[in-house]
Amino acid sequence: MQIEIQQIAPVFLEQEKISGSEIWNQLIAFQKGEYVQLIAPSGSGKTSFIHFLYGLRKDFSGNIFFNNKSLKTISSTQLSSIRAAKLSVVFQDLRLFTNHTAYENIFVKHQLQPFHPKNKIEEMAERLGIQNKLQQAAGKCSYGEQQRIAIIRALQQPFDFIVLDEPFSHLDEDNSKKAMQLIEEETQKRNAGIILADLEQVSFFNAQKILNL
């Protein structure tokens, strides 16, 4: 799958923030297998961009195409199948079922379209150091643990792109590196691309392209 962005800009964002951007009002194509980092200071519309890309919001001008299909006219069923098999995401606000266990949060994604066998969940949790938290309610986990749950959840499905919105904001460097390594391994298995948005450049992410929002 190829993602093509054609002159998109949030309808609510000030003109001066749009004019200096390397993303807003630009023509950009993200190719499968490509690693891209978006550097976005606070208030530049980073999360909005992720939401536009994931089809959660449509309050933007311009257009986004998935394999030449406009995101603005795509059906809800088609969008669901893209989310289930082509585009994975780690939201900045994580979006976990806080009353359900970490395992349930991961498994609900796994069962939709599994990429790995079920036991891979425990293996990933162990690598990221949350194996003891799997049976704990996600809401009771620390924010850093919740971030790792969200990362493991995003890695359960097949995808062509994984979109990460400040995925390591509450992780120390060691845990961030472990998580990044796991993400890159899983991405390589799928020959997929990474779009990572953060406030500043992530040193341990081998981005091929850096774009300033």
């Binding site: 994931y54 069923t77 669901s80 989310r83």
Partner: peptide
């Protein structure tokens, strides 16, 4: 909230 999240995760509204 949960249903919205299921839709966000890729569960189709039709299913």
């Amino acid at each position: 909230h949960n249903l919205q999240l299921l839709l966000t995760l890729g569960y189709s509204p039709q299913w």
